[in-house]
Design a protein around this nucleic acid. Structure first.
Lengths: 216, 216
DNA sequence: TCGTTTTCTGACCGTATGGTCAAGGTTGAG
DNA sequence: CTCAACCTTGACCATACGGTCAGAAAACGA
């Protein structure tokens, strides 16, 4: 499509600065909420003067909006698993694994998303009403098909999806609580695996998912 | 214990004002987060001058702390179901019902709690480390006993509890998302019942809960 | 009724915040 | 090298916020 596209030093700097700022913003927004976050805090964390932030992102709202969009992208990408799966064991199983991985790798983003929705989704209401609604309807259809094909018990697809979202996000959003109950230590690799396995087992068991292939 | 305790008009007013302020504060904190909430907003919603708020609650932090404590009380009270139950079907079933009812009746409180934990529990860390830890340990013991008695499958008690918390809280914390996906309308009575039933069915099924009595 | 305690509230204050700006530095194309 | 475009930043501004306070008003006990 495009020639090697000469990358000037300017372009590189811009890209890097935007990345650093977005990363810092994600963290600060997650830890303090939109209202509690300050541009100064984000600037300090990014290692840049505050005025420089306003050069790249004119307003706090704009910066916040970018942060939220990025998370939504990741969130949606995890949905791919769901599609080409032959049945609930593979589809939902892979989805749980993907979402647990997101909770682990992007805890800040997850919190920002949760915060945004909890506060009435002031900046992403349109996403909810378009992209998310479509996505949900599509997956609900898949689930209904699986039910019709006798691959799982007849559960309400929406409530199943809510349960999947809730359970997997919980490990990011309430990570602090979990850590505290874990003796103040973050979950180890092994514990994350156990968590993922638990979630998969209970949900797949609870919906009477029938393996389409050979395993379990 | 005490005589009828003459209720002066002063006492009544004080009590009423504190109630109104706490209620307004709960709502504003839930909708805007701690950082985004302002004393002026809370005062307006309570129908009192701002200075009056500071008469009853010296600082914003103090007011916030009271709000969070109240929620924790309610949250803990729901735990009672768990105790005297003969097995997981009754115990966990009742717990889910209680927590779903809380999500429905106290969505603001639930959000404040979630927000607080998400931001690292700056004001209730001590609760987490004492009361919540003890509570959790106690319930985990009950679950282990049920497992030993063959009343349910051997699942990790902690992950089961997390799933219960996550799933039930989700209907309050992400209520806006759910409402949007429900065509912009809040869940009806019937839909709340269906949600509760779904959650109970999937989780109880997923842990292979065996009824101790006669039903299901 | 009178004096005391408690409650109420408009006006005010210091601070911190989001955002601006102008001046100076850097980079890249011709 | 030159000049225009772009980037950087310390200093600055208006506003809004949490919190204070003095004095008025109301409630109480005797």
């Amino acid at each position: 499509m495009s020639a090697p596209e000469r990358l000037t030093k300017r372009d590189a700097t811009r890209r890097e600065n935007e990345r650093v700022i977005l990363e810092a913003a994600e963290k600060v927004f997650a830890e303090a909420g939109f209202g509690g976050a300050t541009m100064q805090l984000i600037a300090d964390m990014a290692g840049l003067p505050k005025a420089n932030l306003h050069y790249y992102f004119p307003t706090k709202e704009e910066l916040y909006r970018k942060v939220v969009s990025r998370i939504f992208e990741i969130w949606l990408r995890a949905a791919a698993c769901f599609d080409a799966a032959p049945g609930p064991v593979e589809g939902i199983g892979a989805y749980v694994e993907a979402k647990m991985e997101i909770s682990r790798r992007h805890p800040h983003g997850s919190k920002v998303w949760a915060s945004e929705v909890m506060h009435g989704a002031p900046v992403i209401q349109d996403y909810l009403e378009t992209t998310l609604r479509d996505w949900t309807a599509g997956r609900a259809a898949v689930i209904r098909r699986w039910i019709a094909e006798g691959k799982m018990a007849p559960v309400d697809p929406h409530h199943l999806l809510y349960m999947l979202w809730a359970t997997t996000q919980h490990y990011a959003d309430f990570g602090h609580q979990i850590e505290t109950l874990n003796g103040g230590r973050p979950l180890s690799d092994r514990q994350w695996q156990a968590a993922t396995a638990s979630v998969k087992r209970i949900i797949l068991g609870g919906i009477g998912a029938v393996a389409t292939g050979t395993d379990l």
